[in-house]
Design a protein around this nucleic acid. Sequence first.
DNA 1: GTTTGGTATCGAAGCGCTTCGCTTAAATTA
DNA 2: TAATTTAAGCGAAGCGCTTCGATACCAAAC
Lengths: 336, 336
Amino acid sequence: MATMNDVARAAGVSTSTVSYVLSGKRTISPDTRAEVLAAIEKLGYSPHAGARALASNRSNVLGLMVPLREDVNVSVVMQFVSAVVTTARTFEQDVLLLTQDDTDGIARVMSQSIVDGMIMMDIEAKDPRVPLLAKMRKPAVLIGLPDDAQGLSCVDFDFAAASRVSVRHLVDLGHRRVALIGSPQASLERHATYADRVRNGFEAAASAANVDFASRACEPTAAALAHALQDLVTGVDAATGLVVHNEFLLPMLRDTLSEMGLSVPADISVVAIAPTDVALASTAPWTAVSIPAHDIGRTAVEMVMERMHTEKPAEVRLIVPSLVQRVTTSPAKASV
Amino acid sequence: MATMNDVARAAGVSTSTVSYVLSGKRTISPDTRAEVLAAIEKLGYSPHAGARALASNRSNVLGLMVPLREDVNVSVVMQFVSAVVTTARTFEQDVLLLTQDDTDGIARVMSQSIVDGMIMMDIEAKDPRVPLLAKMRKPAVLIGLPDDAQGLSCVDFDFAAASRVSVRHLVDLGHRRVALIGSPQASLERHATYADRVRNGFEAAASAANVDFASRACEPTAAALAHALQDLVTGVDAATGLVVHNEFLLPMLRDTLSEMGLSVPADISVVAIAPTDVALASTAPWTAVSIPAHDIGRTAVEMVMERMHTEKPAEVRLIVPSLVQRVTTSPAKASV
DNA sequence: GTTTGGTATCGAAGCGCTTCGCTTAAATTA
DNA sequence: TAATTTAAGCGAAGCGCTTCGATACCAAAC
């Protein structure tokens, strides 16, 4: 392995010159620059990340802690991961992967300076990892909104607003009884913040609009879905407008409803809260508030990078939802 | 940040002593060891990964290149990732994440010594990344079997044998016409090695058993599935035994068949080639050859680690399949 | 009592880079 | 022409660790 010294010798310059050619932090004449680059090429030189990290105190690696739980949809997780990795590369950063359960990992990678910053997904209301992260003196961004962010920056989709927009859309169409099918029970119980916020937003919006409402958690199985729907959309006070925040269930929703004799949107209008590709993965695409996983992931990286060199106060960014009407919502039938 | 020097001073020893306490590479008296550990504790010392990497020429990071494609099932990918990360931690390694399309990433992370070794998933028959990897002088393991591994080690599930076992099971049950529903067309076209091997194994086994066979690629949509089934399991020469290697499709398979008036296993026996949890995610669990994602991921890490310090010849390990009969296969009806 | 062999510790070199201050030469100004 | 500025490059210190002798001490062996 050629070192920077070898390059310097081959180019007939000092190592510092080579370093400045590479970093561009001082002016170098075009001639020497060319000679240095030629030497680099010829020797197949590439800098040693460890040495660079030692001297510059920067590793050019970002830590990303991802959830690998039963109750989160891995395909959505992957959209975040993909956005984070791609964006990180535009900042010349690589991404180190930590799993949710590896709580010690936070301290390990940060205090050993393996990473320059951290991004943490799937934050819970009282997430024990948040105080740990806050103690470290490197930038960190949460994807999600804990009760107390302890001075850390956060980015997330505005799930409460997403619920609100969904309810309002249904109400505007004349629906007077709305229902929510949400995340699995497990997500609610551990207070994954998106689950809580969707539910609270839903209930607040329905109350404010003065319409009847009901909400249910739902496990990712056909049976659970059928059961939940039984409760919510049949009987005398059946809802005619449904909000679904559960990517597992969406693929089976239409069939399950039709087995119950309900057609969409004639009998029941449905708004999905889901990534666009999930909402479109159906012959009759869902009216949906899309979860912009890519934007969130990208923003998280940008926020970490902004705080890498310069002090910048913590901030919370909520991505504003927008509803796209497709073919699964329509005006309510005139009430009896 | 306290350095090793600070610790040495606080403990009244030399830095080398501290280093040896930490690495255990020389004997240290219990007393000094205790003092050193106390100083470490008191100062909240943790070693600087960059400095360590520079001096020892080891980063303790493994690179993992994962596919984020449309045609691979992310939940299966995550099982591999999870196994790799977990196993890596048992070797005190962290995992750096690279995405499939980042071909330059291989050279970058290896020649800059950001990682000590690489694991690459979703290998294609003539994968352009394989020669790149082979050029590097750090250990690497492929999950998959390219046509030419160029001296690299490989680990994978024996998909050909999985097909064989599935066909034999159906044949033993008296089925004389078998069909395969495989990966999406895209996977076959890019010669993802699992897709090719499942198909070839299937056709070879059926030929050898002297039974009729047919096979189809299938996109991950209900419509495509219905269409494929139409071809394969209806009509005069309908198959009565079906092998399915496609995790997307399994959840909708039973319903689609029942809409066609076919019940499982009365009218048609089905063997799945899928991870156990997918095979069990049904009220009537599938007879299946399970894809041991966790074992494969773990083995990949072990193989990299074995080659980290010592020269060891490349090897190919195929994980032997085993079929578990559940409730979706039964003897063929007596033929007419 | 001298030699041998272990055991526990120290000191220093070096891993490959970044960065600061200095020097030299050329360009600009008065 | 002398004084001043600017551009380009050099040298050396230092980042925090690992590792290889060398050393000092003590117990056992002859």
